[in-house]
């Protein structure tokens, strides 16, 4: 069918009564479900964040900015800042491991690419508690790594690796690495090999080629992968608890405790909204960067 015909067809369809019925039947139930189950709860916590905390865990209908004010409290501010730091380190590490790996996959013969990608994604689809737990097994003082190092005589005392910030970072990188590699792969895959050769032919060093040509072109993948790692890392409370020793280290732990321990719904709502706000900022940066890249590189 020609393009014109197709457009006319769509026009005709879009305005016919049967298509309006089709639209309602197909989109209606799902959108209604999302409105009630995602929209309403979100609106609710926005509202809660401006209300007064009730004495028994609920809220009192008195508008206040108290909950937002708590963010300025150094104890909570440090947790938020600390979470951003840990999530950033995890993102950078995942990028450092993921970028070269994605590069190699993109260069594999076609028949191996799918296999290599499935092998990357598979761990992601298994229970993340169990994947976190595996690191307790590896990192604890009687764990595999310490035993091996001691067996080789490299250390006398076990290294206290578990229950450190480093352990949290390793756990987060481990869990979310596949989410970094996939978008990186797809943007590297799309690169025209001729571009790389052209840059070399014109006398650019590999480093310069990478920085001036390849890096900007794979920026969409870098941005997407970084968001996929950063956002869930930020809100994760299981990894800090299991590998970080159960202290209140990250926003996720705080959010959970506002419900189950402190019974402070307004402040919990504020923290949850902070996670959303950070995500939106990243999505906005991503959109801006993508638009710029498109403008410069056509």
């Amino acid at each position: 069918m020609s393009l014109a015909g197709r457009l006319e067809g769509e026009e005709a369809k879009a305005s016919s009564p049967s298509s309006r019925l089709g639209k309602t039947v197909t989109l209606g139930p799902g959108l209604a479900y999302l409105a009630v189950m995602l929209g309403a709860p979100l609106a609710l916590i926005v509202g809660y964040s401006f209300l007064t905390r009730g004495s028994f865990g609920g809220v009192v209908m008195e508008p206040t900015l108290d909950a937002w004010g708590k963010l300025a409290n150094p104890i909570f501010f440090d947790v938020v800042a600390g979470s951003i730091k840990i999530a950033s380190i995890a993102t950078v590490l995942a990028l450092a491991i993921g970028y070269p790996a994605a590069w190699v996959i993109a260069g594999l013969p076609a028949k191996w690419k799918t296999v290599a990608l499935v092998a990357v994604v598979l761990p992601f689809w298994s229970n993340f508690l169990i994947r976190t737990y595996a690191w307790i097994v590896l990192l604890n003082n009687e764990g595999l790594i310490n035993r091996v190092l001691r067996g080789w005589g490299l250390i006398d005392e076990p290294l206290g690796m578990l229950y450190t910030e480093g352990a949290i970072v390793v756990g987060l990188v481990y869990i979310y690495l596949p989410l970094m590699i996939l978008p990186l792969y797809s943007s590297i895959e799309r690169l025209d090999p001729a571009l790389r050769e052209a840059a070399f032919d014109l006398g650019a060093s590999p480093r310069r080629t990478f920085r001036r040509v390849l890096l900007p072109l794979t920026l969409p993948g870098i941005m997407a992968g970084s968001i996929f790692v950063f956002v869930p890392s930020l809100g994760n409370f299981v990894v800090p608890e299991l590998l970080g020793g159960g202290q209140e280290i990250m926003i996720g732990n705080l959010v959970r405790d506002q419900f189950f321990k402190a019974r402070d719904l307004p402040f919990g709502s504020v923290l949850a909204l902070c996670v959303i706000a950070l995500m939106l900022v990243l999505l906005f940066i991503q959109a801006t960067v993508l638009r710029r890249t498109r403008e410069t590189h056509g």
């Binding site: 999302l34 916590i45 930020l234 409370f237 719904l265 919990g268 996670v275 959303i276």
Partner: peptide, 23 residues
């Protein structure tokens, strides 16, 4: 509408969990 349907796939689970329990 497109974005609304895909939103839950990237939405942080902790936020969804907290707001659902409140709801």
């Amino acid at each position: 509408v497109d974005a609304a349907v895909m939103a839950p796939a990237i939405f942080p689970d902790i936020v969804m969990a907290f707001s659902l329990l409140a709801f």
